[in-house]
Design a protein around this nucleic acid. Structure first.
Lengths: 261, 261
DNA sequence: CGATAATTTGAATTAACTCAACTGTTGTGG
DNA sequence: CCACAACAGTTGAGTTAATTCAAATTATCG
């Protein structure tokens, strides 16, 4: 089946990528080393740990644990979520290769969410305190760290704006376009990709019932905008998908105009 | 009327507070100087600009403007919002004394939202680039900047979680409790305060129609939880208000247990 | 292969919205 | 300083988008 091909592809990439130094990593331009001098990248590289990949459903961290590392995803994907007292989990974000995890833990020096691998996932571990020490010497690193945190703030502000005034359709369209953009920047297809999360998880992230997500996929397919086969998504009409967002698009345009991050 | 008393009170505070140095400022523990050595606070103080207060409805910054300053509110309050192409504005946040504004601008070196004074408001201006320079020397300042950005991320994550799975009632309760907490930490009453924003603005922030906000105030008053008179709110039964949040409370508990920020 | 989990689809329900009318408040200019 | 216009808030009635509950279908995993 199609999803087997996909898993296979992922595995190949991750094996290839695990031990790559920052200087050789294809994600450098999206990641912490962005804008640093080669010498400084070398120093940064010196503190990066690269362990064996996480298996699907393995936790990267959990709430209450002491902040030790920030993590950058090399391959695979991770969901970040909260869960309190037997309640259903609430997904706060999905992270793709090149994206950094754990920034929310800086405030209280402990993680505030669960981070769980959605598939086999390789990460770089960045010991936070050593990173802070290193940033004393490297102004570019200081700046990039602030930029990354600021980026996270902007991403969440965009989500807030979407959640508090977007219809279900707008929310799903925005989500798919966000994924599309992010895949594209990482050199994958912007119009043909696999979702690593369930309908349930998408719904939780977008504030929708899983049934609503399912119905929306069906509707967008019937309208000829998407081709959906389970987790395999093909965007057949990108501009019509973008049109569903209407006045919200300026935000995307602004982001797209910036290469960094 | 009551609201005139309020305006008067605000004015007195702001006149008193405008020229206070960081070292003498009652907000120090909530603000950027938190955790810094007296000498370092002095150096930080040296780059802070304190101009005449903003009048109600005056803009602090607008989208597209070059990032120059971060701002800390001394007195008054500010709403941060986006607005695209004739559409209704979308409120992204409200800021009270001691809170920092403009962090979202770091990513692209330009502001991404409007920031507008909801009442007469005094702010400290922190030239961002000089702040970055200063942070090269002061490790505590570097750390505190990261903490502040991380705090913002956590606040927004909390809002996201609220918006995508909370009822209208939970949203309003959470909003009022958040205000209550913040007022309390600043030495104001936790149970008797004035809202500086309209029902419309609250609704926009919480993803609710203004009529819904109005009806909820009425309902919470009828239930004996609140006393509402226009913008004057008195919380008559704090624990019942908290109970409306149910499983969401652990988040508040965690925050309350931390003194800093 | 059988069991468990994920997804799809339908039908009924509902929380919140929109539209509309009315009231109270605030600010402004004559 | 008052009158009036513009604005902010309240309340009611009808509508609707998305939910919940239920059932059938299709994957996935041991």
């Amino acid at each position: 089946m199609v999803s087997k091909d996909w898993c296979l592809r992922m595995k190949v990439i991750s094996i290839k990528g695990i031990k790559t130094a920052c200087s050789d990593c294809s994600l450098t331009a999206l990641c912490l080393p962005y804008g640093l001098e080669p010498d400084d990248i070398e120093r940064l590289d010196g503190l990066v740990q690269r362990n064996r990949p996480l298996q699907r459903r393995q936790l990267l961290y959990a709430p209450g644990e002491q902040l030790v590392n920030l993590y950058v995803i090399k391959t695979g994907s991770v969901k970040v979520y909260t869960q309190s007292g037997g309640e259903a989990e609430r997904v706060v974000g999905f992270h793709l290769p090149g994206e950094i995890l754990g920034l929310e833990a800086i405030e209280h020096e402990q993680y505030g969410c669960f981070a769980k691998a959605l598939e086999t996932t390789a990460v770089c571990e960045l010991p936070f305190h050593r990173l802070e020490e290193l940033s004393a010497d490297i102004s570019g690193l200081r700046h990039q760290m602030l930029r990354l945190l600021s980026h996270e703030i902007n991403e969440e502000a965009r989500l807030v704006s979407l959640l508090n005034s977007g219809s279900a359709e707008e929310r799903l369209a925005s989500f798919l376009l966000s994924l599309s953009e992010r895949f594209k920047r990482r050199g994958f297809s912007a119009t043909d990709f696999f979702l690593s999360m369930s309908r349930q998880e998408m719904g939780s992230y977008l504030g929708l019932a899983l049934e609503t997500v399912s119905r929306l996929f069906r509707r967008l397919q019937d309208e000829g905008i998407l081709q959906v086969e389970r987790k395999h998504i093909q965007i057949q009409n990108l501009s019509r998908l973008q049109a569903l967002l209407q006045g919200r698009s300026e935000c995307h345009a602004q982001m797209a105009s910036n290469v960094g991050l």
